[in-house]
Structure formats: C-alpha cells, structure tokens
Design a protein around this nucleic acid. Structure first.
Lengths: 214, 214
DNA sequence: TGGGCTATGTTAAAAATTTCACATGATTAG
DNA sequence: CTAATCATGTGAAATTTTTAACATAGCCCA
C-alpha cells in the first residue's frame, strides 16, 4: 500500500486505528457497507475527516454507496503496515509485563511477543505465558535470532532508560513504553508512550472543571 | 487554581502531564530552577509551547531566572486537579485488571482504586491486592458507599459497553477504559481511551515508512 | 545602588489541521 | 436506457495550534 501523499498527520494515524477498531466491530455484526457519515458517528468524528484521512492513501469508497467494510478494513490495515506479523520483545517482567504477556489481544492483532527479558536474577529462567524470561544482557543476541523489530518496555520508570539502551543497542527501531517517564533515543528510533496517567490527569482536569462551574 | 482562559486545548493538558513527569524527575535529581528552554528539551517540545501552555493558568515563572521546579510542579498539578485523591473503581478483574490493582503507581499519583468489580461468579469474593472482588451488580451501592468518582474498565471488549452502563448508572462521570473498543456514554460523562494498539499501529506505520524509503 | 543580562509572558505571524461545500461519478428505480 | 439520487473525493475556507519575535520585569554583579 503506497502512501499517496507526503506527510501524514499523526492525528490521522491515530484515527485510522480507531476506524479499524470500529470496522472490525461492524464486520462481526455483519454490516457489508457503511457511509462516511455513519462511520463518523460511530467514531465520534466528522465525516469529512474520515474521507480526508483515507484520501492520504487512496480511494477506497464507491460514490453514491459508501465503503465496503471488509475491504476498507483491509486497506487501512495495509496502509498502516499492520497486515503482517511484528515480532516484539518485552523488557520488564513485573505485574504489568506479565499481564501483557498473557494478553491474547497482542497476538490477535499481529504483534507477537516472542521474547521476555528482565535483569532480576530471580525472574530469569521463570516461564511466563510459554516464554522463558531471559537476562536483558542477551537482548542483542535474541533480537537477531528471533527477528525482533519492536521493543515493549514495562520496567519501573527508573530502569526504563537502561532498557532503552539495550533495545537501541540491539538494533530495535520502534519502542512502546509503559514506564511513566520520558526516555532518550537516537533520531532513527520511534518511541510511543502509553501513559495511563496522562489520561487520568485529563479526566481529573475535566471533572474538576465541571465541578468548579457549578 | 482558577483557569485563566476559556478553552484549553486537549493537547495542552496532555503536555502538562508530561511536564509533571519531567519536573518530578528534576525534583528527585535536586534541580531547583529550570528555564523553559531546558524543560522543553527534556520534554521534546518547543520552549514557547511550554510558556503558552502555562499561560492558560497563570504566571509561574520568574523573568530572567526561570521556574522554581517544585513550585511549578505543584502549580501544574493543582491546575490539573491532581493535587488531591481520586477514588476509583476497577471493572474487570482479568490479567490486566489484576496487574493494575497491583500497580503501586496509581496510589502514588493520587488515584486510589478502592473497589474491584467483576461479573464472573468464580472471581467474586476473591481477594486481589487487599481488595475483595465484588459483583458488578453492586457497583452503584459501592460507588455511593466509597465515594468513587472515576471508573476504570479492564474487561474484554465485548463486555466494555455493559460495564460502562453500570458505571454511568452508578453516577460515575469519568471513565478510563483499556478495552480496545469504542464505548457510548451520555454527554456529561468523560471517557479516556488507553489503547496500546493505537500506539503499536503508529509504530508499525512509521517503521514501514522508513523501510519503504530504502 | 544602578546597569546589563536573561528568561519570562504576550502579541503577532506561520503552519497545520479540521470543516465546509460542491462537482463528480456510481447506483438504482422507473 | 435514462434520470434522479446519493455519497464520495477534493479544493477552498475556517479554525485551531504551533512557532517566532519582542517588550517587560526580575536577578546579579560591579
């Protein structure tokens, strides 16, 4: 799936992921065709927004009709590069790390966690969700051996930067981190932050606002 | 902390949360004063951006000097409404739910999970992280009893809407959901989506882009 | 104590993003 | 087969957000 246009807004990518979410629900419900208007309603966005977002990648609709749900879903996933398997390494086998290793949704969506790493000697050798926990020092070796392209950090914040170092050293170019801290990486490495607290803070702010208004 | 200006961009709120993250690291490191330029570097944003974001809420800096780190941190947290305790209910005690119940960071940041709910009879009565799992039907009663204001959904996607219904019914006005699906709520209820896959999709997209370029 | 220095707060410009409006082209009913 | 209808794709307008520029005000040193 070639990109039609130069730069694609980050917000567009985020919305495309939402469209996929909603489209997969529609597929399960058996809906064959949907208009940008209805899809927009389900995603809580503007219909033009959807059409514009899709236009970055090509023409997927049928005028006078709408979009074929399955086809559109396939096209978006192809555009995003998630129509394939991505092999991932998880660093930090604590509570959250274990939960993610047991989270079937990852495999379901093409993100296969094929390596689990920790620096705690008590955890090394332990088996979690069919994976043996390996010493973080062996990350580089394992990344090469298993063809890993994405790193997932679930260490405590104070160890996130070290984990990042190991991942970058191993040649990883994409990192998803759950640690509530900023990490520093070279320019060619992409980082995505999953931070519950950003969201909780946003909630707190909104709830406080409406309280104050009354 | 009164809001100085009318509407505050959502992006600003998100960045304020990042500032807090970085400021708390600076406090730990013993830094007393920081300029918008250095703080900007640490947060990977533009210095003007920081000054503008802060200007929505007031004047916190000292000209010619910068910002007192502790004071700024306190001010931002007050502006966001996170200088207090928020009591939360968690619905869906699966892998992820359990991991979050054991995640100390929540309490550390003022979000106290004081109720754990599930509809699975096998889980009801079980104790997780010092909390007894209660039947979701009793949510309303417990929300009133415990003064809960925020709901956290960690159910599978197909049960997220039902959980939402229970939370809304119980009078909850802020929901953080980890379920990879959109949920429908009345206008007065705020929803924040924590979706790993949005982030993974964004990574996949960026990684695919640079691959294609070569 | 006063002048230079420095980084803020703010106003104005630039850029990016979202929304609107409509021509285009496909579908469907008569 | 034709005409009416409909929803897309797109270019232009409106809005929002970000960045730059600078006047202002507080610190620090002579």
């Amino acid at each position: 799936m070639p990109v039609k246009s130069e730069h694609i807004p980050r917000a567009t990518i985020k919305r495309l992921a939402v469209y996929v979410q909603v489209l997969e629900n529609l597929i399960r419900e058996g809906t064959d065709v949907i208009s940008s208007e209805l899809l927009a309603k389900a995603c809580a966005v503007n219909p033009s927004q959807i059409r514009k977002d899709l236009a970055y990648f090509g023409e997927f609709g049928v005028r006078g009709l709408g979009y074929y749900v399955k086809e559109l879903n396939t096209s978006i996933k192809s555009a995003l590069g998630v129509d394939r398997v991505w092999r991932c390494a998880l660093v930090g086998v604590g509570n959250l790390g274990k939960a993610l290793l047991n989270h079937h949704e990852f495999k379901l969506r093409g993100f296969h966690i094929v390596g689990a790493f920790d620096c705690d000697p008590f955890k090394i050798g332990e088996e979690v969700s069919g994976l043996e926990v390996v010493c973080t020092r062996r990350l580089k070796e394992k990344v090469a051996e298993l063809g890993i392209e994405v790193g997932i950090i679930t260490t405590p914040p104070e160890r996130a930067q070290r984990a990042t170092g190991h991942l970058v050293e191993a040649g990883i170019k994409g990192i998803l981190t759950f640690a509530p801290t900023r990490i520093a990486v070279p320019d060619h490495v992409f980082v995505e932050y999953v931070d519950f607290f950003h969201h909780l803070y946003a909630l707190a702010f909104n709830l406080t606002l409406i309280e104050d208004e009354q």
